[in-house]
Nucleic acid binder design. Structure first.
Lengths: 212, 212
DNA sequence: TATTGAAGTAACTAACTGGTTACTTATATC
DNA sequence: GATATAAGTAACCAGTTAGTTACTTCAATA
C-alpha cells in the first residue's frame, strides 16, 4: 500500500541512469583508457559491482555511453525540419545546428576521439549506431539537389563529403581548443571567439556551395 | 685506436633518438594514458631506467615527442615557397600540403588529440612550440591580402580562421576515419576515398575564398 | 693512467586497476 | 506468506604501473 510517489527503496532504472551519466562524464573527461571504473561507481553513488551487474564490463559500458551520445545528436537532427526552408536557409540552419550542438554537448567530441583512438571497435559492434546515419545524409542530399536545381548551389557537391566538412569545421575547433588557444595565445573558448568561429563556418560552407 | 666508423659501444645520442622514436610510436598508438613506459623502453631496446635518465618522466618524454612532431610540420611548411605563386595557386598548394602532411605523418593527429584531452598542459610549457606558429599565419595573411588586392579572393577572410579551417577539413577526416568508415560502411582509408577527399577540401577552401 | 661523471642494468616497490567472490536484502508474483 | 530472482554490499585478488634503489661499466680528459 505504498504511495505511488514514494521514493522506491530500490530503483534499478534510476541506478542505471546514474551509472550512465557518471560514465559519460568520466569517459569524456579522461578517455576510455584514463577513466576509472571505481571513480564512475563513486560518481554514480553505487557499488562498483553494479556497473558489472548492469553493463557487463568497462567496454560495454563505454559502448552504452556511445550509443546514448550518438542517439541524442541524430534525434535532435531529425527535429530540424529543413524541408520548409530554402536550400540556402536550410543549409545554414544545419551548419549552425551542428556547430551549436558541439557547444551544448562537448562530451560528444571527447567520446568520439576516444572511440577513434581505439579504431571504432565498440561502435562497429552497435547496429543501433550504424543504422542511425541515413537520415542526415538524406537531409543533405535533398538540400543539395534542391539548391542545384534552383541554381543557388554548385552541382558537383557530394553529400557525404559535405557532411564530413560541416562536421569538421566545428568539431576540430572544439576538439583542439586547448592547443589552438595556447598557440595563438587567445582564449578560443570565449563567447566572442566562439561566435566568430560560428559565423565563419557558415560562411565557409555556404561560400563553397555557391554555383561555379 | 678504434676505427672512426666502428659502432660505438655506447652511443648516447643514438639511444636518445631510439627512445624518442619508440615513444612517438607508442604515444600515438595508445595515447598518453594508454602508452606504457615499459613498452617504450622495450621498443627502443634500452633499459627503462634510461627513459628517466634522458627525459625525467613520462610527461616530459611526451612533451619532447610533441616538440619533435610540431617542429617537423612547421619546418616543412617553411620550405613551401608560396611567394612565387599566384594567390589561388599558393592557397591550393598550402591546402594540399596540409592534407598530404596528415597522410604522411598520421602520428601528428594522434598526439594532438592526446594533448587536447589533457588540456594542452604539456604544450603550454613549451616556448619552442608556442613560438613556432607565426610563420604559417604570415603565409596565409600574405596570400589573402594579395588575393583580395587582385580581386580573386573575398576580402573579409580572417587568416587565423582560414588556418583553422584548412587544418579542420583534413584533420577531422583522418582523426575520425574509423568511426566515419564504420558509419558510412565504406573504407575511407582507401587511396580512392583519400584522393576524393583531397580534391574536395581544396574545392572547399578555394570555393569559399571566391570574391563575394 | 687515474679519475670522474655519464651510460647502463636488474630487481624492487607502493599504489593502483578491472573484475570477482561470497554474501545479504528487497520485492514482485503465485 | 513462501519463494525465486533481481538489486545491492564489502572485501578481496592477481596483474599492472610509473618510478626508484643500489649497483656496475665505459670512455673522455686532466
Amino acid at each position: 500500500m505504498s504511495p505511488v510517489n514514494a521514493p522506491a527503496k530500490r530503483d534499478p532504472e534510476a541506478a542505471r541512469q546514474r551509472i550512465l551519466a557518471a560514465a559519460l562524464a568520466e569517459f569524456s573527461e579522461k578517455g576510455l583508457g584514463g577513466a576509472r571504473v571505481d571513480v564512475i561507481a563513486q560518481r554514480a553513488g553505487v557499488n562498483k559491482r553494479m556497473l558489472y551487474h548492469y553493463f557487463g564490463n568497462k567496454d560495454d559500458l563505454f559502448l552504452a555511453v556511445l550509443e546514448l551520445a550518438y542517439g541524442e545528436i541524430r534525434e535532435a537532427e531529425k527535429a530540424l525540419n529543413l524541408d520548409d526552408l530554402s536550400p540556402v536557409e536550410g543549409m545554414g540552419k544545419l551548419v549552425a545546428f551542428t556547430f551549436d550542438y558541439f557547444v551544448q554537448a562537448p562530451y560528444f567530441i571527447k567520446l568520439l576521439n576516444s572511440e577513434n583512438l581505439h579504431g571504432a571497435r565498440h561502435l562497429r559492434r552497435s547496429k543501433a549506431i550504424l543504422d542511425m546515419h541515413g537520415p542526415v545524409i538524406g537531409l543533405i542530399t535533398d538540400l543539395l539537389e534542391r539548391g542545384a536545381a534552383e541554381g543557388v548551389f554548385r552541382d558537383d557537391a557530394d553529400p557525404v563529403e559535405v557532411f564530413i566538412t560541416i562536421a569538421s569545421v566545428g568539431y576540430f575547433y572544439f576538439s583542439n581548443v586547448h592547443t589552438l588557444s595556447a598557440i595563438f595565445d587567445r582564449d578560443l573558448t570565449s563567447e566572442r571567439e566562439v561566435a566568430a568561429r560560428r559565423a565563419h563556418v557558415i560562411d565557409v560552407v555556404l561560400g563553397y556551395l555557391r554555383p561555379t
